[in-house]
Design a binder for these strands. Sequence first.
DNA 1: GGCCGAGCGATTGTTCTACGATTTACCGGT
DNA 2: ACCGGTAAATCGTAGAACAATCGCTCGGCC
Lengths: 235, 235
Amino acid sequence: MFYDLPVTDEWGTRLAGDRALLDRGSTAERVADVLRQRITEGVFLPGTRLSEENLREALGISRNTLREAFRLLSHEGLLEHQLNRGVFVRLLTSEDIRDLYAIRRILECGALRNLPAVSVETIKTAIEAADEAAVRGDWSAVGTANMRFHQAIADLAGSRRVSEAVRALLAELRLVFLVLADPRLLHEPYVAVNRKLYELLAAGDAAAAEEALQRYFDDAEAQLLSAYATVNGAH
Amino acid sequence: MFYDLPVTDEWGTRLAGDRALLDRGSTAERVADVLRQRITEGVFLPGTRLSEENLREALGISRNTLREAFRLLSHEGLLEHQLNRGVFVRLLTSEDIRDLYAIRRILECGALRNLPAVSVETIKTAIEAADEAAVRGDWSAVGTANMRFHQAIADLAGSRRVSEAVRALLAELRLVFLVLADPRLLHEPYVAVNRKLYELLAAGDAAAAEEALQRYFDDAEAQLLSAYATVNGAH
DNA sequence: GGCCGAGCGATTGTTCTACGATTTACCGGT
DNA sequence: ACCGGTAAATCGTAGAACAATCGCTCGGCC
């Protein structure tokens, strides 16, 4: 005698999570995941050329599959495809930085507007992670936590497309951080700013939070542009 | 005796334009252009499966190149890639429609906020094209002109990424129009709405224009959802 | 009659090989 | 030092081959 499996909601959600691990998608997508990881880790710095032949051998896949992965990452803005020259880790210009902040202003501030009922759970989590990393002096982790904070703000819009767009934008922005020297200078100042913003949101004052977010964008953009100008002297 | 070519700014911009014609990009990109065209024309209706073998033969290209083109269009949201099953012209759900309007609200309204100096040239052009097409009774052309109108609004943000994001969103939205029966019903009502919006902008009243845009989104979303429910009965 | 599993054809996923086209680097002549 | 040409490296694309997977049909069985 056997019992039927009891089907519960809990099962459904758990299996859906496992699925992502089993159906890891096509080889090309898994390769793209690996490369994305390495790029955001800074193993491949912006400007680096990724040779088809070298990577093909290193990853043990065919050129076709590798090229499909390149296409994926090019569309995400992490790689740049130059005809007959190969793919390069994207090296952003100052103009790119301005543009990134322009669209982030619109998307993230837009997410704070017309909030039905604010759920600040994940935002709080990100804030706490940033605090904790700051205490440890792990400024890279602080940067990651700050990005999660902004991702959580964007998620408030309740739109899959908004969330994914912001995810891609933050990944691009990480390319800028990678070429700048001092991660502490880049991330530490915003731990307090973000906490203040969180408190405004938690208190239900979305308008004040949006104002604070605007000021944050102004400051961060200016800081990043000036830091970038010194490193990236010629365009 | 020869003269050196005088190098002027005018030259630079003109040559940059010509370049797009010469460097037509890789074969994969040109194939993607063709397929995109056919999809937006409605030759391949949403839900249609695109066979690799058939298209390969029809286009006279290799499978590799075709698959690269598929990747490009999948990332644009026009195609959907199902592992081991092939690619299909994307069939949007009602949830997709809601999401599209959610992000359009944020992006287009955001573009109207914080305008430095409004240049309503291209907006006017789109309005006039819509009027002219409406007189001819070419409702499909009216739809195209209306989309150009919204694209022009998004362009006011002055951000490349905002413009490209809205371009992709409008292309997705076109997939919805393709499965609905009556193009007149879908597009005609908004000719007057858009003209009114243009006049508010031309008068410099950006706040009123934003308000009108919000109402437009509410109306259009509701109309589209109800029309979609009748056609697309089961999700 | 309807359910279930084996087998089969069609299509996709991936690899491998090949070759033309383009870029890049090197090198000798002026 | 500049210019031009040749050779090597790399990319772009094609094509064939094989494995993996899906969808369907056909029997067998309850």
